[in-house]
Design a binder for these strands. Sequence first.
DNA 1: ATGGCCTTGGGGCAAGGA
Length: 260
Amino acid sequence: MRIATWNVNSVRQRLTPLLAFLKEDAPDILCLQELKCETEAFPRLEVEDAGYNVVLHGQKTFNGVAILSKRPIEESYVGLPGFDHEGQSRYIEAVLSDGVGGAVRVASIYAPNGNPPDTPKYRYKLAFMEALTQHAAALLQLEEKTVLAGDYNIIPENRDVHDPAAWAGDALFLPESRAAYRRLVNLGYVDALRAVTDDGGLYTFWDYQAGAWQKNKGIRIDHLLLSPQAADRLQGVEIAKTLRAGEKPSDHVPIAAQLG
DNA sequence: ATGGCCTTGGGGCAAGGA
């Protein structure tokens, strides 16, 4: 089973590369973030024609998350439990068949950016991470195959950014942000990419500005966190880097985990 | 050499993103 996550930066602007990815990469499950449209405006027919079931939580202009699945979606839950989302659509969770007689629980997460620091936006980012950590702890108790996938808006370590000094004061890389990510992982999750490689320079985002892609000035902020039951099945991780060079790219690229 | 963008809503340009 292949599960991917992708911040598309407007699903309507990204429809062509999205459908191409579904056809060519054909993940079993694809988590999307930053739909930037209301639920009714999501291109449901096109995605269903591509062979996928959909659950989503849209929002006008900002945010918006979805889970696409080849197999039927058995349960779905909108919103992060215990968190007043203030109208921001940043979390959706689903339970699906894993195709081999079991189930897999998947979350599509769009964590807040949090810039600038020393503002309510940064406190909101940390509050979201705290609520996510609480919920993630509860999910571990279920002892299921669980994948928490999405745009965490956190650069975990120095090796995950082209120039750590340039990002030192950014909400994505502040020590408090990185500590929040560590607390989540340290509950007992596995950062899928880090389970398969120690290499630095593996990025999922390149800014549109200043030729960041051409200069490979990227950051790793899109992550797949695996419960122990999911991690035991991990066979590989791939970053679909070529999509960043395509027509009308998102500033993020998909990252996918292969689970046995 | 430096800095160089994209999206939405809405009909300018502000706001958000990272």
